[in-house]
């Protein structure tokens, strides 16, 4: 209980409390209750105290959700075949491949993301051979785009998609696949009717594990998006560093948390319903 209290609840409490306080212009907070931070998400307060609707932050939230969805979908498309491939190997090779999948986790994310700059940059690893072969004449301009951010996110969170899908596919009884083949189902049908439905818990878990941190990511947007394409994570980070608006940062973080909790609740409800049906 104490551990949960100190490591889980206390920082969250502080975050929530901060979001309802006034900003100290030099960082930190003034202990005065205020809803200004939340109002600021949707409205701009002009110097003459008129409140004007300001869609900037909503845009950022929309872009973040969009990019997180793209990243989740990308991870799913890439991760499912990888996970399936791994389960079809011998146990020894399975362990080996899982080890390789988790290996990047042991190096710093910042450095790994920098290496993507080298890959995507003008005259980078991708462009140089294409230029040399004359396939392209000019830089593709891959850096500092939403695409670059999506690639960075997919790269970062792919293992979080592969592992839970692997876990559910690994439990799949391969005799069911044989039974489906025996009942006139070709490969595609077996995939659609048997393998994917039975791997659904892993697919949902993987999607949540990728979607949630993608929403709050700031390293990939900063480095690969050039900080121009702000995402929620970067926005929050900015409020605590250069902008020195801790209550605003906290308020956005609380909103992000609310978004995540709502989506998790919906997922848990539907999973509960499904389990009840399968009895």
């Amino acid at each position: 209980m104490v551990v949960i209290g100190i490591f889980m609840v206390l920082p969250m409490m502080i975050l929530v409390v901060f979001s309802f306080l006034e900003a100290d212009p030099y960082g930190g907070v003034e202990p005065v209750f205020s809803l200004e931070a939340y109002i600021q998400i949707l409205y701009e307060i002009d110097f003459d105290d008129t409140v004007v609707f300001n869609p900037i932050y909503l845009n950022i939230i929309a872009r973040s959700v969009g990019l997180a969805l793209v990243a989740t979908f990308g991870c799913l498309i890439l991760g499912f075949p990888v996970a399936y491939f791994i389960t079809r190997q011998s146990p020894r090779n399975q362990n080996m491949l899982l080890y390789l999948i988790t290996l990047p986790f042991w190096t710093n994310l910042l450095i790994r993301t920098y290496s993507w700059i080298l890959i995507l940059a003008k005259n980078g690893v991708v462009e140089q051979p294409l230029l040399a072969l004359g396939i392209i004449d000019d830089s593709l301009g891959m850096m500092y785009t939403n695409g670059a951010i999506a690639i960075g996110l997919i790269y970062t969170y792919l293992p979080l998609m592969v592992l839970p899908i692997y876990a559910s596919l690994e439990k799949l009884d391969f005799r069911l696949v044989e039974a489906a083949h025996d009942l006139y189902a070709g490969r595609l049908k077996v995939m659609r009717e048997i393998i994917v439905p039975l791997a659904m818990p892993g697919i949902i878990a993987g999607c949540i594990l990728v979607f949630v941190p993608s929403l709050g990511a700031f390293i990939a947007p900063d480095l690969l998006g050039g900080g121009k394409k702000l995402m929620l994570g970067s926005l929050i980070q900015l409020q605590f560093s250069s902008s020195r608006n801790w209550p605003f940062g906290s308020a956005i973080a609380v909103c992000l948390l609310a978004l995540v909790m709502i989506s998790l609740t919906i997922q848990a409800r539907s999973a509960g319903k499904r389990r009840a049906m399968e009895g």
Partner: peptide, 20 residues
């Protein structure tokens, strides 16, 4: 011929019913 092109069906030892 692959199994799904053979007009033959199997009753499996452990039933292999589709759980979903």
């Amino acid at each position: 011929l692959p199994p799904h092109h053979r007009p033959v069906n199997t009753v499996f030892q452990h039933y292999a019913l589709f759980p979903h």
